[in-house]
């Protein structure tokens, strides 16, 4: 059904109450918003959580002002290539990355928000090529997979506080193209990837070893990993299924948590989170046990991945459909964006 046809009854008790609007910003110069994220910005000992918005040719930094208002601090012009996604660095301050390209990522650039060394905003090329997936890791590292004439390259690059790349390490690549990454919580040196052939691979980040290749089966195509954690000898991986469709059963979930025994490569589904009735899915975003995704109806859905069901649905507003949904780095803060550059911050 069209989004405006959704009623509280159709939402099955889901309500907007669990999403409380905190503030709103509008980038009036934005031609077409493509991504939104949050970043820590520290100047002269004062640290603030800021919003970063990306439109096709530029990325802007917004800081909170008084009375729930936001002010644009700086805009990086990124040249001829279009922005594809913002790549936040989870525990970094004053530093983030951005992926640029046409249909696929051709460049990763780092953006420096502030440096006491030179009091300036900078940008520089971190990596170029036929890049298939990129993720910002803890300790100012960036992992990416790319296709080269010799096969696939999976590389981790470390950045200094002022952005300059310090060193790189190549991880042993699997045969299949890696399309997603997730750091493994609870294991400092472990990294998980999902492949185009529906595989889950595990690396040792310190040694570069490819430790295990495990298969997800073909029941759930196009799985992308968002989060991984190790507990009680098992590896739990949170996967999304961007092309999931509405289903009456759990055969086609938007998200699922799968437990792997890395020793035997056997796996079992733990929790399935289905789409709300009448909606089809898109790629989502996961933080802790919360998942969010923009649906093809233009609504934003939020799931509790422990309960395995949708807990909130944000229908399209009067201005139009939602286009972006990302969790901020602080818990319980959802950034929802529209194509016209409007970004709403919700407390969940």
């Amino acid at each position: 059904p069209a989004a405006e046809q959704l009623t509280p009854a159709q939402l099955g008790g889901l309500a907007e109450e669990s999403l409380q609007l905190m503030s709103k910003l509008k980038d009036s110069s934005s031609s077409c918003a493509v991504d939104v994220s949050a970043v820590w910005w520290e100047v002269a000992g004062s640290r603030e959580l800021c919003v970063v918005t990306a439109c096709e040719g530029s990325v802007s930094l917004w800081t909170p002002l008084a009375a729930d208002a936001w002010g644009k601090v700086y805009t990086w012009q990124l040249g001829e290539m279009a922005v594809i996604q913002i790549v936040p660095l989870p525990d970094a301050c004053n530093l983030m990355c951005v992926a640029l390209g046409d249909l696929e990522i051709a460049e990763i650039r780092w953006l420096l928000l502030y440096s006491s060394e030179n009091d300036s905003f900078k940008q520089s090329l971190l990596r170029s090529g036929n890049i298939k997936a990129v993720l910002g890791l803890k300790a100012r590292r960036v992992v990416s997979s790319s296709r080269t004439a010799c096969g696939q390259q999976v590389e981790v690059v470390s950045l200094s506080e002022t952005g300059r790349s310090r060193d790189g390490r190549t991880l042993m690549p699997p045969e299949e193209t890696v399309l997603g990454f997730a750091e493994v919580e609870g294991l400092q040196d472990a990294l998980v990837g999902t492949t185009a052939a529906n595989g889950v691979v595990v690396w040792n980040l310190r040694t570069g070893q490819l430790l295990r290749k495990m298969h997800l089966g073909y029941s759930y195509p196009a799985s992308v990993c968002h989060r991984a954690y190790s507990d009680s000898g098992l590896l739990f991986v949170v996967l999304s299924h961007p092309h999931a469709k509405e289903s009456e059963s759990c055969r086609n979930p938007a998200f699922r948590v799968v437990a792997f025994n890395p020793k035997t490569a056997r796996s079992t589904g733990v929790v399935f989170s289905s789409l709300p009735a009448g909606h089809a899915g898109r790629r989502g975003d996961v933080r802790d046990a919360c998942a969010a995704a923009v649906l093809t109806s233009g609504a934003v859905a939020v799931w509790d991945l422990q309960l395995g069901h949708c807990t909130a649905l944000l229908p399209p507003g009067p201005q139009g459909d939602w286009a972006l949904a990302r969790w901020a780095t602080t818990p319980g803060c959802l950034l929802a964006g529209q194509r016209d550059g409007t970004v709403c911050l919700y407390r969940y």
Partner: peptide, 23 residues
Amino acid sequence: CGESDLGPISLKWFEELSAEAPS
């Protein structure tokens, strides 16, 4: 180590796989 339908589980799976995998 424990037993389940996922096979024998080891709390030190990461260290063990790192010791076994080619480098």
